[in-house]
């Protein structure tokens, strides 16, 4: 073997010695992740504190690793957690199983589930890697009230407060709506029992 070849090889070593180092002293020093890094999930809230998650289980359905467990339940006028009729009474993500593929995020119809950049997920026990709803919920926005809300004090959630604007041509249909509302209230007075469940 020719010495020139040895030098050629060593030149790589020497060059690397003077390159900028990538290594950081991890627990003391941390690097930011890329913005779209798939980290721990988060269950988001509306500005008024209500949960966006409606307990629909679509995330659980989408999950290829069967890492999500959702149990839906009824919102009631006395205890309202989310906007519609349904909320997640139990919401768990099992990080023993999750592969951080993000399919659950895509499935979520309400943008309740997103991923943070938090990657420090470790635990001495398996149980510790099963994250419950409180572990996943975003903080209550400043000034907002944590659920459950009651319709009596917080008002029933109107669609306009949450979704994309309910209508793009509200004015044009207003006369029709007035008629429908009037007829509906007559109908309700006449033969329908009082609302047993949840207002729209």
């Amino acid at each position: 073997m020719m010495p020139s070849e040895i030098l050629k090889g060593l030149s790589v070593t020497f060059r690397s010695m003077f390159r900028k180092r990538n290594t950081v002293q991890y627990p003391e020093e941390k690097r930011p992740t890329s913005p779209r890094f798939h980290g721990r999930h988060q269950l988001n809230r509306y500005p008024d504190g209500l949960e966006r998650c409606i307990g629909c289980e679509l995330c659980a359905y989408a999950c290829p690793a069967d890492a999500i467990y959702v149990q839906g339940a009824d919102n009631t006028p006395e205890a309202r957690y989310s906007v519609g009729e349904r909320y997640a009474a139990i919401y768990q993500i099992n990080y023993n199983r999750c592969i951080f593929c993000g399919l659950c995020i895509e499935a979520c119809p309400t943008r309740a589930l997103t991923m943070t950049n938090e990657y420090e997920l470790s635990s001495p026990t398996r149980q510790g890697l099963v994250y419950d709803k409180p572990d996943l919920l975003a903080a209550v926005p400043a000034g907002a009230k944590p659920p459950p809300h009651t319709d009596a004090t917080d008002g029933p959630p109107a669609i306009a407060r949450y979704g994309p604007q309910a209508s793009v041509s509200q004015e044009s249909v207003e006369p029709v709506w007035a008629l429908l509302r009037e007829q509906e209230s007559r109908q309700a007075d006449r033969e329908l029992p009082a609302d047993e469940g949840v207002a729209k």
Partner: peptide, 19 residues
């Protein structure tokens, strides 16, 4: 369809076993 949809109170209990 871009207009407002019809809305009714929901759900209505029509018997103990049917909503």
């Amino acid at each position: 369809f871009v207009e407002t949809k019809r809305h009714y109170q929901k759900p209505i209990k029509i018997s103990e076993t049917v909503l």
